[in-house]
Design a protein around this nucleic acid. Structure first.
Lengths: 234, 234
DNA sequence: GCGAGCAAAATTGCATACACTTTTCTGGGG
DNA sequence: CCCCAGAAAAGTGTATGCAATTTTGCTCGC
């Protein structure tokens, strides 16, 4: 994280590369993609990214290869890379898989969640309710995400955690839109009440079902708000 | 695929790089890792791989970054890469996730599988029975894999297909061991009979359950044969 | 004999250079 | 006016070179 500011190219600082550049680039590019700071679908020449980060093409290309393997960008042979466009269909299909993963996480979590972890989730839940009451979308969204993440973490399965993180990251830039519909928002909160109850009762099977329908509903709601548009960045 | 044979370094063939080298390297390295042709856990200097493939370090390093993002190798900063060791626990946790994915695939597949696809799976199934009868492990294994793959493909969900391929590839080098136990082998075949039946009946929920227990059983069987060893390559 | 400390070798990380491919620009038919 | 060579420009793919870090080997001291 000791790299030069994003905007301008680093003038000249051969001091000491405490960490490897390509790993930093992966992080920064991933964030930029998720935040929507890069044009979707368009070709982005390596040269402009190099100048933006103040590095040469070698570490940048290595970072691009890694992000392509993650599915965040597409590599066109001899034609560079582009941010992978997200169609409504892509999102729906990704949410299907995420639903299955969260269902599994829920089942596993019920069998091994600790009191502390559960308490943390309860706290997040009530925070979320507060944000919902005030209609503060962004904080609500963050609390919501934290709950889902906490359940996945509580599964104790690193493979599951990593896979979930990957898929979740891919569609993150589209997730905000899911709660724009007020009716759906209320419904989602109601579902979360049931989720918390099932989790506290350690009802794995029931919780798994709830997670699945919760995600399915989110998917359907999203499908309505984004009929067949692909998600473009700012 | 127009690259020189794996064993020796390519003498000199600057002819025409029909395809990009780093993509070929990803494929070949992935195969080598899966086949167990690379020492697990040990450091493999870039230099020896370069000489082996007859390429320079740049495309090789790009390939390594991609494979690291897939989880097949680990990158140690300033210390190169190594094949990610696979503990019995890693395998068990990966199989859990794969089970959830196959269960989802089964459900989706039941709703949309075509007659042709189903016929193909039936054919594979009977081939598999034949190999089982003759105790031909390798052909059996291939037919078995083909059936699982066909079900996932029939889900019609590309995200699911890709995620499955990734996780499946990671533990492939350990999967052969699962059927070394004769009793378990017979059991697995019996389970496949039920799977085929449920698929033909388009019983999504039932099939999903079957897939899950099928994978769980495979996991338990594996846990017994590989108590807590990490899977080392030849 | 054994471990600490230093130097040489090996290896990784990054930047630059060059070959090849794709894209764009331009001029001339039709 | 449009379309199609053909060449120039831009951009990607790979190789090589150099700096920095890590590893190895050796010497010295205990």
């Amino acid at each position: 994280m000791e790299i030069a500011p994003t905007a301008a190219a680093a003038p000249r600082r051969p001091a000491r590369p405490r960490t490897v550049i390509h790993a930093q680039l992966v992080e920064r590019l991933r964030d930029m993609i998720v935040e929507g700071d890069l044009p979707v679908g368009e070709r982005v020449p390596e040269r402009v990214l190099c100048e933006r980060f103040g590095v040469s093409r070698t570490p940048l290309r290595e970072a691009l290869k890694a992000l392509a393997a993650e599915g965040l960008i597409e590599l066109l042979p001899n034609r560079g890379a582009r941010i992978a466009p997200l169609t409504a269909d892509d999102i729906a299909q990704t949410l299907k898989v995420i639903g299955a993963l969260e269902a599994l996480a829920a089942e596993l979590a019920c069998g091994r969640i600790t009191g502390d972890e559960l308490a943390e989730i309860r706290a997040r839940h009530y925070q979320m309710l507060a944000h919902h009451a005030r209609r503060d979308l962004l904080p609500y969204f963050k609390a919501n995400q934290a709950i889902h993440q906490a359940i996945v973490d509580a599964s104790g399965n690193p493979v599951l955690v990593q896979t979930y993180a990957n898929l979740s990251g891919r569609i993150r830039r589209a997730r905000y839109a899911a709660n724009l519909n007020p009716a759906r928002w209320d419904e989602a909160v109601a579902e979360h009440e049931l989720i918390l109850k099932a989790l506290m009762a350690r009802d794995g099977a029931g919780l798994a079902r709830l997670m699945r329908t919760h995600l399915d509903n989110k998917s359907h709601s999203l499908a309505k708000s984004h009929p067949e548009t692909s998600v473009t960045s700012a």
